[in-house]
């Protein structure tokens, strides 16, 4: 009996010690909750922010814009800063889910190129500060695939059956199919969307599965040979697998801006704006570009970064006007079209 009591006391003591370890550390002046896509920041940058301003940053990640929207709608989430994509910012702004920013608190907004301001998702520049931008393209394994791919058709080609990865998020998956069919990514024509759905149904037996963040590992390790993914991630993959190639197909693609915004749940707006402003600083931007492989809308940072960047990589990171002219930005769609996307997505996977 005595031994039992001693061991119980020891276990309790160990648990208490772990508890105190987790809560130890210094007192902060404030706290902000930041919600971002996975693998989309240099984690040192927000740690430096914590150090410099004595504001604790609780950093968490999500996989798709749609899941972010659901989390906010369900309520109970208390995020202060979000980083998300253009069309989702447009949707949230329309539905009154975002706070207007106080530009006096974000002087570094000036560093951002006008090209990325007043875009259709935030035409009056009320809600968002661009963070990164890039293109969606087709990534393929040049070592295993003995041809130059220039068309989305490869993702629907039976000879690559079992080696293809497809997006899990509805806008991205349909975006690929719509591009291939030569339709606008923002089409509201239900017949065109249905055609894209039929294409995805035909493609289903050929794909390994529908993924988002997992796609990175699968392409990098050679588990899959081709898939549609983001330019920035391609640049990071290249470090471990130099036989990968990235191409923005001839039919066109999606180019996107991901931006900071502040949801209504924010309780510490000044700290949130301080954080956004800090993230726009050129040195911080450079660190994030280095770590994520994405291009910043901060021209000064891009110029510095491009100086010692390989030309072939620069073309992917900072695509030319010619490439961008083929690409389209996602716009927010009317609710009935979004519902259509959802029901097709469920039918596709069911």
């Amino acid at each position: 009996m005595k031994r039992k009591i001693v061991s119980i006391v020891l276990v309790l003591a160990a648990v208490m010690m772990m508890l105190s370890l987790s809560s130890c550390g210094k007192e902060y002046d404030g706290e902000i909750n930041v919600y971002n896509f996975g693998e989309y920041i240099d984690e040192q940058t927000y740690k430096d922010f914590e150090e410099e301003y004595n504001i604790k940053v609780n950093y968490t990640t999500y996989e798709t814009c749609e899941s972010l929207y659901s989390v906010l709608k369900l309520g109970g989430a208390d995020y202060d800063v979000l980083i998300t994509s253009d069309y989702m910012i447009g949707r949230m702004a329309n539905e009154g889910m975002l706070m207007e920013l106080d530009w006096d608190n974000i002087p570094n907004y000036e560093l951002i190129d006008d090209k990325y301001k007043k875009l259709e998702y935030d035409p009056e520049e009320l809600y968002s500060v661009p963070y990164m931008w890039g293109t969606v393209g087709l990534i393929y394994n040049r070592e295993e695939i003995d041809e130059e791919i220039t068309s989305w058709g490869a993702l629907f080609d039976e000879k690559y059956s079992g080696n293809i990865l497809m997006f899990d998020s509805p806008r991205d998956a349909f975006g690929v199919a719509l591009s291939y069919l030569g339709y606008s990514l923002n089409t509201t024509d239900e017949a065109e969307i249905e055609e894209a759905y039929e294409l995805l149904v035909q493609q289903k037996p050929l794909v390994q599965g529908y993924f988002q963040d997992q796609m990175y590992d699968k392409l990098e390790s050679g588990e899959a040979l081709l898939g549609a993914y983001y330019a920035g991630d391609y640049i990071c993959m290249l470090e471990n697998n130099p036989s990968l190639k990235f191409v923005v197909p001839d039919e066109g693609s999606n180019w996107y801006v991901d931006a900071f915004c502040i949801p209504n749940s924010c309780e510490n707006k000044e700290a949130a704006e301080l954080f956004i402003n800090y993230m726009c600083q050129t040195d911080v931007t450079l660190a994030n570009m280095e770590s994520t492989g994405y291009a910043s809308p901060n021209t000064e940072a891009c110029d510095i970064y491009a100086e010692d960047l390989d030309e072939s990589l620069a073309e992917i990171m900072f695509p030319s006007e010619e490439v961008l002219s083929r690409c389209e930005v996602f716009l927010n769609l009317p609710q009935n079209i979004l519902d259509l996307y959802d029901s097709y997505m469920v039918k596709l996977k069911a």
């Binding site: 749609e66 599965g209 529908y210 959802d342 029901s343 997505m345």
Partner: peptide, 19 residues
């Protein structure tokens, strides 16, 4: 591979996922 959707995934999708 997200290709064989189960009830749990379908329910999760309605609360936390796409739709």
């Amino acid at each position: 591979g997200n290709k064989t959707m189960l009830l749990g995934d379908l329910i999760e999708m309605q609360f936390l996922g796409g739709s």
